[in-house]
Structures are given as structure tokens and as C-alpha cells.
Amino acid sequence: MTTSDALRYTRISTHGSGTIPAAGFGTLIPDPLATKQATKAALEAGFRHLDCAERYRNEEAVGDAMREAFEEGTLQRRDLFVTTKLWNTNHRPERVKPAFDASRRRLQVDTIDCYIIHTPFAFRPGDEQDPRDERGRVIYDSGVTLAQTWQAMERLVDDGHCRSIGLSDITVEKLREIVAIARIRPAMVQVESHPYLPEWDLLDFCREHGIVLQAFAALGHAMEPSVLQDPVITAIAQRVHKTPAQVALAWAVQRGTAFLTTSTKPQRIRESFDISALPEDSMEEIRDRITTSVRFNAVVETGVPGFIPRAK
């Protein structure tokens, strides 16, 4: 890992020759206009890693924000690391490249820095993103394996418009299976991770194989129990004169992971980028004194994204 004087500019090396900006801005924002405005605010704040997805249905808005920044001369394409994702209904090998090319067109870029399989679960292929049977159950696709989808992803890198590939919402056991058969190893895996779900085993495996672990829901997604109200986090925040959110994001980068954060509020976006290194004793406190263990998103079990409030 290479770190400049400011933690916010950290870039993490992959097993290849590239590096990935640790601070990432997620674009899971329902309204396209809000998506465009938030993306522009993120770029102005200093974020240089944008995380997108076919599933979010707003790639055009992200593309518009990037294009305007390029036209204004404030940024060049090489300044940005752009990630987007293959949705579950496009796992069959013949559907991978058309889905990838469609994302490129919507994002208005010639190359994608990292193309990620959104979940390891294949859904029935077709235009319906969330296929369900008459009883409301997800219709899965048993006609394709994750290994076959991965091989199609590898061919995207061969073709030259995709710089790297990765996986999301994956367990360490499933990641081991892909690494074992991969001709081109994942550059990045994206999973829920925060002080209540540190995923140390997965992080150790990623380090061993030169894979970047990127944490989504790095602040706990405003769920209960609240990461940002944890007494260990709030006490550290008071000591270092930062917000609890800034403490949690600094912890993510200092332990060697990238993170994603999302907001539509410019002030909150700037705050999320304005992180500083924590004292080592604070890092140890978070690791040793926080004992709460919670996964907020059950997508790793079903392939269906979504944060479900816990019963009280």
C-alpha cells in the first residue's frame, strides 16, 4: 500500500501493476438528477473512484457528470477510476460483453477500470432485473456457473476495454474457488464491511493474493445497532476532533481496505473525503474493544441486494 501525506489520497496496489484509490464514492442514488449532482460534488471534493452498476439504473447520470468535468477541463479521464457491475440476469457468457458495452455507452467512457460481478448468484436471463415466480420467489438460473461467467469477464480484459475485473457480495469460500480457476485474478472484491463486520479472514486472503478489499456500507448504512454511535468510535472521534464517520472511514483505509460512501449532501460528501490518520492506539481500540458483530445486508445469501432493519 502506498500512502501520501494525506490519508484521503491513499492508493492500494493490486496484484497487477495498477493501483486503486482507497476513497470511493458510491452512486446508489435513486434519482438521476440527484445522482448527477452528487457525483459532481464528489469529484469537486476530491473523490477519484466512482462506483456504479447497471442495477442502479443511473449510469447515464454518472456519465453526464464525468463528461461535464472533462469538458470544463477540471479533470481528465485518466484521473478517474471507474467501476461498474454486471447484473445477475447477465451471467450467461453470451450476455456479458453486451452488458459491459451497454454500461460503457451509458457512462460515456471507452474503458472501464474495474468491471465487477455484482453478486455470485445468476438470475433468469432477460430484461427483467428482478425475476420472480408467482409466489414472489427469485427465479435463479441453473444453466450457468460462476466460473463460466468469470471466464467471460476475463475475455473483456483480453479485448482491451476493461482494465481489471472483480467480484462483489462474495464469501471467502467462493472467492477461493474463483482464484483457484482464474486465468486473470480478481483485482478487487466489494463486500459489506465496517467495524461491526471487519471481515478479517477475507481481508487476509485478499492481501495474500494481491486483491483489494473494498468495503461498502462502511458506516453501517444508518442501521441499528449504529456503528456511528458506538462508544468506542465516538470516544475516539472526540479525542481526534473528527466525526464518528471520519473515524470509521480512516479505520477502513488504515487497515488496508478501500471504502465506498454515498450521500447527496455536498457537506457530507466533503466530510467523508476529509479523513486523517488515526493514532495506532485508536486502531487497536477499534479492533480489540468493539465486540458487536452484525451483517446488515443479506445479499451474500440470496443475491438480492437490500438492507433489512433488524427486529427489536
Rank of each mutant, 00 (worst) to 15 (best):
M1D: 07
S4F: 05
S4V: 08
D5L: 12
D5V: 08
R8L: 03
R8W: 06
Y9R: 13
S13R: 15
T19S: 14
T27F: 04
T27A: 10
T27W: 04
T27R: 12
L28P: 00
P30W: 09
L33K: 14
A34W: 00
T35A: 08
T39C: 14
E44H: 10
E44P: 00
H49D: 04
H49I: 08
R55D: 02
Y56W: 15
R57T: 06
E60G: 00
D64F: 04
A65G: 02
M66G: 02
E71Q: 15
E71W: 09
E72C: 12
T74Y: 08
R78G: 09
L80R: 08
F81N: 03
T83Y: 00
K85E: 07
W87F: 14
A99M: 10
A99F: 06
A99Y: 05
L107F: 10
Q108K: 15
Q108A: 13
V109A: 12
T119L: 13
P120D: 14
F123H: 06
F123C: 03
D127Q: 13
D133C: 12
I139C: 03
V144S: 05
L146S: 02
T149M: 08
T149H: 10
W150Q: 09
M153G: 04
E154N: 09
E154M: 11
R155F: 00
V157W: 01
D158F: 08
I165W: 02
G166N: 07
K174A: 15
R176F: 00
E177Y: 01
I178E: 03
I178P: 00
A182F: 02
R183N: 11
I184S: 06
A187I: 08
Q190N: 10
E192V: 06
S193E: 01
H194E: 12
Y196G: 03
L197P: 01
P198M: 14
P198Q: 15
L203S: 01
R207N: 10
H209S: 06
G210F: 01
G210L: 03
G210C: 07
G210S: 10
V212G: 01
L213Q: 09
Q214K: 08
Q214F: 00
A215D: 02
A217V: 01
A218P: 05
M223K: 13
E224C: 03
P231E: 13
A235Q: 10
A235S: 11
A237V: 04
Q238Y: 00
V240G: 03
P244Y: 00
A245V: 06
V247F: 04
W251Y: 14
W251I: 11
V253G: 03
Q254K: 13
R255M: 05
G256E: 05
G256H: 09
T257V: 08
T257E: 01
T262H: 03
K265I: 10
I269M: 04
R270C: 06
A277V: 04
M283H: 09
E284N: 11
F296I: 15
N297H: 10
V299E: 12
P305R: 15
